[in-house]
Simulated assay, not measured.
Amino acid sequence: MLLVTGATGFVGSAVVTLLHERGYAVRAVVRDPARADVLPDGVERVAADLADGESLARAMDGCEGVFHLAAAVGAPGPEAHELNVGGTRRVVEAVRRAGVRRLVHTSTSAAIAVPDPDGPGLLVAEDAAGGTALTDPYSATKAEAEAVVLDAVAAGEVDAVVATVVNAYGPSPRGPLSYDQLLVAAARGEVGDIVDTRVGWTLAEDVAAGQLLAFTDGEAGRRYVLCGQVASFPEVLDTYCELAGSPHRVRALPEGSELSPDAPPFADRSVVYGRLGGYRVRDDHARALGVTARGIAEGLEVTARWMAAVSA
């Protein structure tokens, strides 16, 4: 039995679906029953909360693995810290108490983006010492949460791996959320300007496949960066517009530029990374593990077809 927290979220629902399709028995943590309609038939639902360690331990009873994806995105500092750091600490303790064989902790490139020693901008690397150059509550608390997991592995308390996700987009049982919202806005002509900075991109489906590989074949205490391709925001948005049959194109602003306050969701991430020069990725361990995440040309084509189907 495999337990998934954040099971009804954008990436979490993709993980649940993949595990179910691969024949695993899956138990999904569900806080809001109204959101459980995205889960496949046959997936067990269980009520648990990151704020309640006892409920987490009960949910993990009899589980061989735990995929921890639940997180607070866009929450203010104290709330982000309580859920992302405190919640992860309770997950780790529950894993230890329940005797779970392995924890897959989902992190983000924003948690390990540090100044690149070999050039301008940032580096996202699997051998990063920890910490991040980003100062927003989400990035800072995810960096701290990752340290909680890796410290527990070093202390011999749990067996765990870290799956580091870059900008996730594409088909998901949850629907067109996350960076899909920015793609849709661009195709509608609602993104006039975007900062021309380079970051990592990966399909939610490929994140799910990478997480499963990390669970089955990963090395305890190791970080695996799940990235399809590093590309600029304008390149990604214009490519999607072309594939979606949209005449709209964005105007690329130089790094360090600002966007208007009414910019669409996730457009502001181009500003954040643009101030720091974007980032490059080192994901050798994930590639050696067998992760074959698709690049933006194929990934955006898949996304455009899916988006057309779900909006029909």
Rank of each mutant, 00 (worst) to 15 (best):
A59L: 02
A57G: 11
A252H: 05
A98F: 11
L3T: 00
T132D: 10
E93W: 00
L259D: 08
A263D: 12
T132R: 04
S257L: 09
S139H: 09
C227S: 12
E255F: 06
L237H: 05
G74A: 11
G74K: 05
D284V: 13
Q181Y: 00
A293V: 00
A98Q: 11
P265W: 07
R305P: 01
E258W: 10
G228S: 08
R35C: 06
P137E: 11
R22T: 14
A72R: 00
R102C: 11
V195C: 10
L237Y: 04
A154R: 15
E21H: 11
T17Q: 14
L276F: 07
R27Y: 02
A34R: 15
T303E: 03
A186I: 08
R282C: 03
G256R: 03
D41F: 04
A7R: 10
Y240R: 09
A168L: 07
V165A: 03
R275V: 02
D159Q: 14
S270V: 04
G218S: 03
T202A: 15
L276W: 00
R280W: 01
Q229P: 12
A75M: 10
A185R: 03
S178F: 09
D238R: 07
S311G: 13
L19S: 04
Q181N: 01
V30E: 08
A129S: 11
V302F: 13
E54I: 06
L134G: 02
A297P: 01
D159K: 06
L19V: 03
G210P: 04
E21C: 02
R198Y: 12
G42S: 07
D268P: 01
L69C: 07
A186Y: 04
R22G: 05
V104D: 06
G62M: 04
S270C: 05
